[in-house]
Amino acid sequence: MVIILSRVDRLFNALEHFWEHKRTERTAANFLIIAFLGTIILIELRRQGWLSEELAAILPSSHYYAINVAFSMLLGLEVLGLVFSLANSVADSVGKQFEILSLILLRHSFKEFIYFNEPLMWEEASKPVLHILSNASGGLLIFLLLGLYYKLQQHRAITQSSVATADFIASKKLVSLLLLLLFSGIGIIDSYFYLTNQQTFDFFAIFYTILVFSDVLLVLVSLRYSSNYQIVFRNSGFAVATVVVRLALTAPPYYNVLLGVGAMVFAIGITVAYNRFEKKPIVKP
């Protein structure tokens, strides 16, 4: 088991170094720009009737759909960032989940535009604009609450020795690599369904469903190293927050914002209670 965790540690560190490299960030940003502009061009070609029937069948007719494509790809990149954050800190990985939720709410706001004609007319936008404002306001509230959440974090080691700490981190890295494989497979399958004009599924709903199980798994893994009540309660509470976030993704307008903001407030409450009663010394992240 020690040999396996050692190899997992090396593989994870290599992938994380590649992902966080400035060159990778610039390449990802350039890819998003090309995808956004390319989608706009392809949609315009479809509107002019210059594409084959097979290609035109999988393209929408509204230019606003390009915004949805760009944001979906951006969220996919954020998902990969979340996978790598799981190995660093449970609290930070939960914060990353709420970051993604806030971006999903903004994506829902832009998604309303794909149902509009061009140019925009108030008669057809009067009702969807309420959904746009609701989702955008929810994303803003979570953004503001995240600042408080991160400020409250006080990182504490849950183990009493450096060897146990390294073992625990390596275990979390193993979970992260498994999630990376799952999310990559789901993304490839969903993309294939879309390109072949088949029924696609909600990638981010599945993503958060898997996160619920991974959070519970991390709670159980942490029990190998500490059965401290405060730690168990905090990690279990964060798993509950993930469940509420999952419900927010499938809830109708307005309720999704209430659930998302409520989960954020609950996570902050968990953090305040943990800081109040946990007496272990604070360590650097």
Rank of each mutant, 00 (worst) to 15 (best):
Y65W: 10
S72H: 05
F143P: 00
A91R: 08
K151T: 08
Y150L: 12
L82E: 02
L105K: 01
E99M: 14
A166R: 12
F110P: 01
A125L: 08
Q154R: 13
K151Y: 09
S137C: 09
I58S: 07
E118D: 14
V90Q: 05
A125S: 11
F113Q: 03
Q153C: 10
E99S: 07
L80F: 13
A164E: 08
F84P: 01
V129Y: 03
G147T: 10
S61Q: 10
S62D: 06
I142N: 03
Q160N: 15
F143Y: 06
S161L: 08
S126R: 12
F71G: 02
L106W: 03
H108N: 14
K111Y: 15
V83A: 00
F143W: 04
F113T: 04
S72I: 05
F71V: 09
S109Y: 00
A91G: 11
S89E: 12
K111M: 15
A166I: 07
H108P: 12
D92G: 05
H155M: 15
V69C: 11
A166K: 15
W122S: 08
L74S: 04
S161R: 11
S61T: 08
P128R: 02
Y64N: 08
I104F: 06
N88L: 05
L130G: 13
A166M: 12
S134V: 03
G139T: 03
N88M: 10
Y115S: 05
R107I: 10
A66K: 00
L80N: 10
N88S: 07
L101E: 00
V79A: 03
L82M: 11
Y115T: 13
N135A: 09
H63V: 04
F110D: 00
S134P: 01
S162L: 14
A91F: 07
S126W: 04
H131Q: 07
H131W: 09
R156F: 07
V129Q: 09
T159E: 10
S109T: 11
S89H: 11
N88Y: 02
H131L: 09
V163K: 14
Y149S: 02
Q97H: 12
N68G: 03
L80K: 03
T159N: 12
P60C: 05
E118P: 08
V69N: 05
S102Q: 11
L106E: 01
A157K: 12
L82I: 07
Q97V: 13
A164D: 14
E99L: 14
Y149R: 03
S72L: 10
L120Y: 10
V90F: 13
S102N: 10
L140P: 08
F84S: 02
L59K: 01
L75I: 15
R107M: 14
